[in-house]
Amino acid sequence: MYLLSLKKYLVSIVIMISLAIPQVNAIEDTLFFYNPESNINDFRTLKKLFDAYLANDNLYKFQPFDNKNTFESFLQQDNVFLLSSWHYLNLRQQGYNNLQPVLVGTINGNITYTKVLSTKKNIKNLSKLHKKRIASSGDKNYTNDVLQNMAQHSKVKFKVLTVPKDIDALMSVLFGMAQGALTARHSLDTLLTLNPKKYKLLRQHAESAAIILPIVIVNKPIVKPSIQRVLTAIENLPNSNSGKEILGMLGWDGWQKIDSLEMQ
């Protein structure tokens, strides 16, 4: 009798699990995120906000990474990826030819921004910053790449201090924790608006070429209908308050559709 009820119990558990499987599958698709242009120490909030937003369609989960190699190990999968355009172009050079950019971030309608190197002290040229500390919210490789381009690949070596955000980088140079700050032009504009006195203490020495904002990519061709649905959900982020909050955390305020030719 006891064995029979145990058997019934086990059977019902198996049925319950099998019923649950399609639901688990439904959210197995993932939006992967990695962005070396920004330093996010704690992804919990971003993940929570994104998961809650994507849960409306019960389709996707959001998976951020702070490690490039781990992120890249998922690139062959049929999923959606949010990454920096700089990283995407590197991937193209590495032979990832199957990736298709679909959306690009915008700030005030622009798909590009620039990075500016500012110092507090007046220096004649960038060689004066040799072995000096440069605060940046981007990761070390990315920051060094931008700085080396600014220094026209001379023998100048920079020491990169990674900080959580652009405003920290600007404060670091203003308060002497770093000799230079590499920040987005729009972060300097914010400083100018909020504290013109502090802004005037900074000297701008070099500005990068236009950098395309982070992009959303997929593996082509798009076969799964769920991929198209999540792309629509991402595109609709600026149309809701919770979506605006997510974009705000990511650092841009809208999207623009792109075709792969624009990213060559």
């Binding site: 920004s38 996010i40 120490n41 704690d42 919990r44 909030t45 929570k48 906000l49 605060a135 201090l161 900080v163 959580p164 955000k165 652009d166 405003i167 920290d168 404060m171 670091s172 924790m177 770093a178 605006k244 909050e245 974009l247 705000g248 955390m249 990511l250 650092g251 305020d253």
Partner: peptide, 30 residues
Amino acid sequence: AGSNITLNLKKVREYNININHSALSSVENI
């Protein structure tokens, strides 16, 4: 050189405070 910012959005809504959405990229925890 770095700061860690926690914003209580629940309270922001409860007190009906206007927030600058573009500043949210500077917030680590919500």
